[in-house]
Design a protein around this nucleic acid. Structure first.
Lengths: 195, 195, 195, 195
DNA sequence: TCATAATCGAGACGGTACGTCCGGTCTTTCA
DNA sequence: TGAAAGACCGGACGTACCGTCTCGATTATGA
């Protein structure tokens, strides 16, 4: 039952935190991920560079928090069929990736994460974790209904879904069709269903 | 009827071209994509920077040519079943992405391509084109066998396959299981088969 | 008849004062004047930065007090001749400048003092004052003996003596010869003696 | 008879050199030595920082060249007496130190030189060398006239003269009296004359 | 006894400069 | 004309200090 150590010194100003996050999100949209520099973020937030580096290790972590912190309080989909549940899940994934900030940030972000082993480990635990949690529940229900096997590989499916959306959005770009989520959901659900 | 323009002045030295490509491939493996700079490539190749810029527009194009120019002269798989054909296709895709150079280069490369509209257009036409050509043939044969519908969306499947492999290799990484290609092939082929 | 204002609040801890002075002197010797920072001094003294700034206006004043606070309780030399008196005076001046801390601090200290008009005024009143007081007495006695004129310019001679020692120690450096004080004393005393 | 190696690559642009020197001299006068930064110099000269660092190791070397490169083509004084010669020599020394740039730069410059062993060695060879050459000739003539001994210590006298002027200008400042050079010359020459 | 007030260690704050590295271009000489 | 060499301007990097500020805690005085 170790309580957090008593805070010493001047506490960090939450307004700085928020100003940095807003400035980052705005810059990523305006100039893109590559051209977004810590210095420019700090200047725009009216903040010293140290104040940024004190909270984030670098551009990747900062942009990740600025762009991909969805509270994700939406209920886990429960439409009664695996296809329907996957479609809802994919819809939200597509929506997140389609955001101006999301589209601008994702490719560079993944590249920076992949290049740094320390950050790489966080992709599963932070970036994909919310989706995985939901997917596990969806799979459980589908297994109970007898739609899929109990040992259906969640990670493989998750990589496939995320990878498909990423390739489609980031690399083909330009407003994915509204049917994308449905098509993908249909294909994948059929691919893992029993029979 | 296009006659080649009359060459004037000193012709380009083909050894420079090869030296640059080798130096690039080596550097990408050794220091990663982000830390690979045109200047370092030129120095390592014993070449002036202009000689690099004269042939490639920038790092992305150079690395792409250095890392992903598989002659791809392997015959198009024809195992008799869609699952088998896809498995062979995916095997070669995994092999390409699993290369040290491939793993090191791919995320950064996609990011740079995605950030530049001019380059972005080439992803489909250059990066995915060979795979697409093969996939089209595979689909044709499967459609003739009655396995899949004639209007199965090739691009969607291709994005899904490539995206799944990319996410698995580049972001989760650490030596994909040998079963990966087979698992994916089974899932996707079932997903698009009739019935 | 200014009575000191009644002290309110927590009194300053004299141990902090001393710890800061010692830390400063040690740091100046170890890393030099330029690399001595207020932050490093405070950390080494186990003290907050404000505790330093509350007592000294900046690095120059702090280092000056830490390095050049000779109590100077030695008796004013009275050897019977101007040359002898000057030699003794110069000896102590050389000794002060030759200290590890003195050598390390002096050039940077003079630069910082010279750059700030407020500090500049203190060079004469604080830095050179003790020597000047002694020189005045020495000159008085020499004038009474008839060795020099009564209006011999004290400041000019003092600047010359201090400047000569400073240039020799700080800029040419490397352990001044033991004869330095004597040679200088002889030259200058002859230079101002009558006839 | 080693000839200089044949120059390769683009030669350095002499206009950059001159622009940097002018910008440096102007900045030193306007904001002082301490507040003169390489970045500000480069910006003012319309030049990249690398272009500055390519030619000078740092601020000290740059400011030294910008401020103290007197062509010194004035003839060596020959007034017929040691006192007169010294007065002329000192006059030029005072003039050099009294320059706005000189006054602003000298204390900080000496501090930076003194702090760096590599630069320290250049003080005698570059900073004081011209004056020393002239002083040697002056002393030779004076010795031939029988005014001074042949082994009069040139370096000691030179340090004394330079130190006296430096202390007077840099630390007391504010326009030294026109008599300064004459007074000093008289004092020192009497101090080293025979008898 | 309690309010007032100054000091203490700690550390966050907005700024500024550091010296290095790249990018992409330009200007030499030599082939 | 191509090529190697390398200088050019601009700008980002991540670190260090500056001098100020804001905490909670401590230690004195005066009501």
């Amino acid at each position: 039952m170790s309580s957090s150590p008593p805070p010493r010194g001047r506490p960090r100003d939450p307004r700085s935190h928020e100003a940095i996050i807003s400035a980052t999100a705005a810059l990523v949209v305006e100039v893109g991920y590559a051209a977004t520099s810590i210095g420019a973020v700090a200047a725009r937030a009216g903040v010293g560079k140290d104040t940024v580096y004190r909270r984030w290790s670098g551009k990747a972590e900062l942009v990740f928090e600025a762009v991909f912190t969805t509270t994700d309080d939406a209920p886990i989909p429960d439409t009664g069929t695996l296809t329907g549940d996957l479609a809802v899940l994919l819809e939200s994934l597509v929506d997140e990736f389609r955001t101006p900030a999301g589209t601008a940030a994702l490719p560079g972000l993944l590249a920076d994460f992949a290049a740094d082993p320390a950050l790489k480990a966080r992709i599963r635990t932070h970036f994909l974790a919310p989706s995985k949690d939901r997917l596990v529940v969806i799979f459980d229900r589908a297994a109970q209904r007898g739609e899929i096997a109990a040992d259906t590989p969640v990670n493989l499916v998750l990589d496939t879904l995320a990878g498909a959306v990423f390739f489609h959005i980031a690399l083909v770009g330009e407003s994915p069709t509204p049917q994308l989520a449905g098509q993908l959901a249909a294909m994948i659900s059929r691919g893992i269903q029993i029979r």
